[in-house]
Nucleic acid binder design. Sequence first.
DNA 1: GCTGGCACTCACATAACGTGAGTGCCAAGT
DNA 2: ACTTGGCACTCACGTTATGTGAGTGCCAGC
Lengths: 339, 339
Amino acid sequence: MQEERRLAVLRAIVQDYVSTHEPVGSKALVERHNLGVSPATIRNDMSALEEEGYITQPHTSAGRVPTDMGYRLFVDRLSEVKPLSSPERRAIQQFLDEAVDLDDIMARTVRLLTQITQQVALVQYPSLTRSTIKHIELVPMSTTRIILVVITDTARIEQRTIECALPVSEALVADLRSRLGVALAGKTFAEVPGALEGLDNAFDADDRPVVRTVIAFLAGTLTERSEEKVVLAGTANLARYGDSFPMAIQPVLEALEEQVVLLRLLGEATTQPGVTVRIGHENPIEGLASTSVVTASYARGEHNVASLGVVGPTHMDYPGTMASVHAVARYVSRIIDEQ
Amino acid sequence: MQEERRLAVLRAIVQDYVSTHEPVGSKALVERHNLGVSPATIRNDMSALEEEGYITQPHTSAGRVPTDMGYRLFVDRLSEVKPLSSPERRAIQQFLDEAVDLDDIMARTVRLLTQITQQVALVQYPSLTRSTIKHIELVPMSTTRIILVVITDTARIEQRTIECALPVSEALVADLRSRLGVALAGKTFAEVPGALEGLDNAFDADDRPVVRTVIAFLAGTLTERSEEKVVLAGTANLARYGDSFPMAIQPVLEALEEQVVLLRLLGEATTQPGVTVRIGHENPIEGLASTSVVTASYARGEHNVASLGVVGPTHMDYPGTMASVHAVARYVSRIIDEQ
DNA sequence: GCTGGCACTCACATAACGTGAGTGCCAAGT
DNA sequence: ACTTGGCACTCACGTTATGTGAGTGCCAGC
């Protein structure tokens, strides 16, 4: 019972701190939330919460501020889902439905996310390795140059020019195209090397170098260089928190410029269901130790294909952000399904 | 003669201010540069320069700081070209030469530019309207879906899926492809509408709707949606100028997130030869009033195809930045030429 | 286990005060 | 006609002193 109130106090502290961005004291707490007890009682509870590591005071004689641990508890047990309003939902859907192709979907999604969360948004393109091949095309550009175009079920279209050492006949290109089409349609990229095993044997010895080059591109280069693609928006929101914050924006901006970092942030979420929240130091990236990352995966059919999310200060509105990220991920899934 | 010294004083002020980032006083000036006159004389000169609007004092009893006008004069008449060291040149060339395709060239260029200037870098993809069409491909995906692929002399590869109302035969696709190839090879995008005039008459009445759809894409949608593409890097450098600056980064970040803004910045430079410098309020974009933008165009053959540049504080090292931007633009031109 | 009372702490705002870098002006020197 | 040294003046900035108040911790009593 006291335990219960203690949690209520923690919840109140988080809520107040998130909305005011100022350390919250015992008196202010009882005034704003009707807890039915006196400030002194709250002080005792706060003492206990501090001892347990959920809150801390920036300096003596200041109010309390939630710790990363405090936010974690809040997110896990104390926050209620805050559903989006239906106008909001309609706006999201309408805005995304206008997209004409994958690039457009991604661009719109990332803008939408920053706008409704007022934070930095990240959206990852459908991972190639989690997509299946829908169509393969080989286009001869010149006698020694071929363009390889791959289209996935997730609407990604990737192309790469292949430089061949020797001239390549149109007939060979046509032959190779149809064989690749048969061998790879419906396969995932992970299955590509297996599916192409021994394919070169079907060709004349003269042609094999070319065939092998193309196969190498498909099995290697293509996925390596394009596998992961992330778009980002809303960095200006980082600067919104005046000087009033323990969050230096430089390391955050630096981290956000590294593709690798973004992929680490989003990558893990893809394997997990629901919304993932990483709070402050839980974060694997040093520069983002003072931020929280909220991510969710989106899917094509039953399979998650990539993730999206937002990066914001640890004192963010978790229920609201989680709801937004979740909702947007759902709508993106739906749209990807339609492709 | 006094006039000459006055300019020398302005030059010295700009140089000192750029390196120290602090208002520069008469005494410090004579100490650091051997001007051969006393501080009092310098004070008179400064007075005159201030009256003319080239410098200003942040507050009474502080040193002077160059105005936008002062920087302008400095850039136009007082700065000497600062050539890059040859190791630098070699590094640039080597780094860019490793690029495997256009995306790679652009990505490498923008990273290179931030790294050597320590500022925010912008690189525009070759403008479609300034490129000529090298190859057009139509790939049937299904009976009602065609992918249109366009490759330019500037190595851009753009593709768009076209949804047709009615099923399309393979034969029609093949026919259309070859006719488009003949009609458009070597043409600029601006010439496309003219070159396709009446092309639909060559087809059966039944096929014309499809043909017209494809033509519409080529003449309109394709250029509209992809004409301009800009990559950006180094925003973290904005945060480097501690709190010590009159440059709020939020408006700058906001401006940099708008594609339209970036294109306005880079667009005008494309029509001009050499390096373009826009200082502070000369800048057409409000949010960038406290920054300077240094741009240069790069070319394929004789024709400028796009621009690149950097955005930094008005108190930047103009000679150095201009040299870097110029050099990088030259190397990019060379590489684009090779494609 | 809750509450009111009370002494204590300490960030923050405000004011007072030197200090010094820098200026403008002027009269004298070249 | 410039240049220069001298001199008084200004004013941002750092330092110190001083209140003020929000907030805490603790304790005795309910």
